[in-house]
Design a protein around this nucleic acid. Sequence first.
RNA 1: GACCUCGUAGCUCAGUGGAUUAGAGCGCUUCCCUGCGGAGGAAGAGGUCGCGCGUUCGAAUCGCGCCGAGGUCGCCA
Length: 578
Amino acid sequence: MAYTIDRFSAEVTAAIAATGRVPVALIETTTPKPNIPADLAFPAFKAAKELGVAAAQLAADLAAAIVPAKDSLIGVVSAAGPFLNFALQPQHLATAVITEIIALGPRYGHQQEGVGKTIVIDYSAPNIAKRMHVGHIRSTIIGQALVNIFRALGYSVVGDNHLGDWGKQFGVVLASIEREGKPQSSGETALEELEAMYARYANEMKDHSALDDRARHWSLALEHGDSEARALWQWAIDLSMDAAQRNYERLGVTIDHAYGESFYEPMLDGVIQEALASGAAYRDEGGAVVVEELDKNIPTFLLQRSDGGTLYMTRDLATIKFRMDAFNPARIVYVIGEPQSLHLRQLFALVRQMGYTGETELVHVSFGTVFDNKGKPLSTRGGNMVYLEALLDDAVQRALAVVEHKNPELPAAEKQAIAEAVGVGAVVYNDLYQDTRRNITLDWERMLATEGNSATYLQYSVARCRSILRRAADTGSAPGNDPQLFRVLEHPAEQQLLKQLARLPEAIREAGARYAPFVVADWCYTTARDFGVFFEQCPVLKAESVTLRDARLALVAATAQALINGLVLLGIRAPERM
RNA sequence: GACCUCGUAGCUCAGUGGAUUAGAGCGCUUCCCUGCGGAGGAAGAGGUCGCGCGUUCGAAUCGCGCCGAGGUCGCCA
C-alpha cells in the first residue's frame, strides 16, 4: 500500500532523478521545518559537492528543469538558496488523502512492512501476591501500545506476560504464610495482607539468617514440586491474576500468553548445562555457576546459586531459548524499567555468546522511574505507593464530576461510560505522551488535565467531529464521496489539516522504528490542534455552498477516523459525545 | 570507582547534522460567543539548548572532557 505521503515522496525523488543532473544515490529528501512553505525538500549540499558545483546553483538549475505532470501530487517547485523545495498540489492532496481514509477506514495508517515477521513483546509482568501499582502500569501501557503499533505495521506480534511467580521472592511469600497463616480475605484486600506479611518477613530476614534459610527452603520446595508449596503458589496466582485482569480490561490490555517464570522450571537444568558446556560459564568452588568477562563492560553474574537454586537470569535465559523455538521471532522486545538495563545487557551478551538467537534482534525498551510530587521514588515502605486500581478509580471519579457539570442531561449509564473512557484515558496518556526513557513525576493535576496536550483534548476533538456529523445527518446532509468534490478544500486551515492527516502512516512507522508510542501521541495532538484551527476558521454546516459543506463534512469524517485510529493504537477510547 | 539513562522557556515536554524568528502545553498578560460543543481559538511576555573543547560549509543534534540528576554493579526480581 503506497500512501499519499509515500507517493509524493517517490514522485519527488523520481522528478529529481529524471533531470539526469543528480545520481540517484545522492537524492535524499527531508521534511522542512514548519515555517518553510514547502512539504518536502532536497538539500543540495552533498550532491553539489560531489558534482563540483555550487549548491544554490544546483538547486536553481533543478527547479528550472522540473516540470510536474498534471496529475502529480507535486505542486510548486522552487529553489530557496541551496534547498530545492517541493509543495504538495493542494487539490490533488485533498482528493488523495480523503479518498484513502474513506476507503481504508479503521485500517488507515496500517501497512505491510512487518508481514511474515514475528515480534515477541515481553510486557506488564506483575508480581504474584502483590497488587499492581504505578510501577507496573508503565510496562503494561507502553507494552500494549507497542503491540498495537507493530500489529498495525503488519507484524505478527506475540505478547507475553512474564509473571513474577517464582524464585526466592516467592519463597519469602510462602515462608510468611507459614508464619502468619493464609489471609482469609479476598481480592485486592487479600493481596494487601500478603504484601504486609511479605514486608514484615523481608524486613526481619535481614537480621535473622534462620528466616532467610526458611525462605530459601520454600523457594527450593517450590522448585522441587512440593505439593503444599505448589498449592499455596497456585492460590496466590489465581488471586493475583483475577485482580490484574480487572485492571487489564479497563486499560484495554490483552496479552496473548502469561507463561510466567515458573513455566521455565523444567528447562533450567538444560540451559545451565549448555552454558557450562559452551564455556560461557563455569562452576566455582562454592558450587555456584558463574558467567564472567563476556565483555569488559559486562560485570560477572550468576546462573545458579551455590545452594543449587536458580535465579532470575537462569529463567530469562531459558525464556529466550523457548521463545526462539516456539515463535522464531525476528525480534524480542523487553518493556522493562531502566534499572534492569544491566541485567538485560548481561542476558543479551550471554545468549549471543551461546548462539541462541542467531539473527534475532534483542531490544530493551526501557522506561524511567515514577516519583511522587516530592521527588521520592514510590515505595510501599515509604507509604507513598499508588495502586493501579485506586488510581484508575480516582481518575474516573474526577472525570465523572466534570461530565456531570458539562453534560448533566446525558443518561447516567452514558455519563459513567464517558467518565471511564476519559479517566482511564488520562492515566494511559500520562505514560504515552512523552519519551518513555524519562523518569516521570506523579503530578495528579497534570495527569488528569483536560486541557492542552491531554487525552481529554484528543477525545474532545473527536466528539466535536462526531457532533458536526450527527447534526449534518439530522438535516439530511452527509459527507461527500465524489473525489472531485474535495478539490475545493483549499483554505490554509483545510490544507494544514489534510497534510497532517496524510502523515499518520509515517508517524506509525516512526513509532515502530523508535519503539516510541509518543510519536503517535504527538501526531494525535498535532492533528487535534490543526482540527481546532479548522473548526474556528471554516464553518462546515453553514459553509458558503453545498459543495463546500459536503467536502468539509468529508474532511471532518476523515479527521475523526484518523484520530480514532491513532487513539486505538494508544489504547484510548473516544466517546461519541462527552 | 566502573557502567547505563537523562540535562532545551518558571514548570512538563517535542526537536536526534541543515534554511538569519529553537517549537508545543501548563502557568502569567490581553483578546474572540447575533456561526457547527469555550473540555475551544487568537495574540504577547518568557530560552547563554548544563559547561568547555573539538569534527563539519553547517551542531540543541556527532566526538571527547567536565558538572548536575536518577539508576545499576555474583548468590532479590
